[in-house]
Simulated assay, not measured.
Amino acid sequence: MSGRAGRGSIKGEVWLQTRFPEHPVIQDVVNNTYNDFAVFTLNERKMLHLPPFSHHILLKAESTHETAGLEWLNGLLPHLRQFPNLQTLGPSPAAMMKKAGKFRFLLTLQCQSRPYLHKVVDWLIENLDTIQKDNRIRWSIDVDPIDHN
């Protein structure tokens, strides 16, 4: 909303409500410039190997059966060990675990190399229906996901 505050010569005002006013990010936003915040955030993302310093694929599995998606993603993990430069995060429930009557689970695949990650995507598309055949599961792949939902 802050982008809508003020117009031209008319000064705007932004209010920030939080339960955690002492949190470093809140303190940074309140006490420093946008540039300071951007530098801090980029350094933090670099240290944690998060985008833009790595690349992600989000593998989503959903099913009307409560644990089928989780089991399906767990069953995929041994097959992904053939990719030594790949880090797996999860599987875990989606932020909104149940949506439209389906239970949703996520597996994040992370790698420093985008071309390597694309090789993994090609392999997944070619092999998932063979190695992890389960008609109860609807799966999708999201390259460079904006959110993990």
Rank of each mutant, 00 (worst) to 15 (best):
T88D: 00
I125M: 13
A68T: 09
H49R: 10
N43A: 12
K46I: 03
F83D: 00
P52D: 06
H56T: 05
G69L: 00
P51A: 07
A5E: 01
D122R: 14
V29Q: 08
H49G: 06
E71H: 12
F103L: 04
P84M: 07
L48C: 06
Q17A: 09
D122M: 09
G90T: 05
T88H: 03
S140R: 11
W123C: 08
L89T: 01
K119T: 15
L59D: 01
G75Q: 00
L16Y: 13
S63I: 01
Y116K: 10
R19V: 07
L89R: 09
V39G: 00
I10Y: 08
H49T: 07
H55D: 09
H49F: 09
F83L: 03
T18N: 09
V14N: 00
L86C: 10
N149C: 02
I146P: 05
S2I: 13
G75P: 01
E126C: 08
Q110S: 12
A61N: 05
R138T: 13
R104N: 01
I141N: 06
I10S: 00
N127S: 10
H148T: 03
N35Q: 13
L73T: 01
E22M: 04
N85S: 14
H65P: 04
Q27Y: 05
E22C: 08
L70M: 13
Q112G: 11
L109G: 06
G12K: 04
T18A: 06
A61K: 08
L124K: 09
C111M: 09
G101W: 03
L117R: 04
Y34N: 10
K102I: 05
P115H: 12
W15N: 01
S113M: 10
L73D: 01
H49K: 11
N85G: 13
H148K: 08
N149H: 15
Q17C: 07
H55W: 02
L16S: 04
Q87T: 12
G75N: 06
V39P: 00
V120H: 05
E71P: 03
S92I: 00
S2K: 12
H65M: 11
V29C: 15
D28M: 10
M96L: 11
N85Q: 11
P21Y: 07
Q82V: 07
K102R: 15
L48N: 11
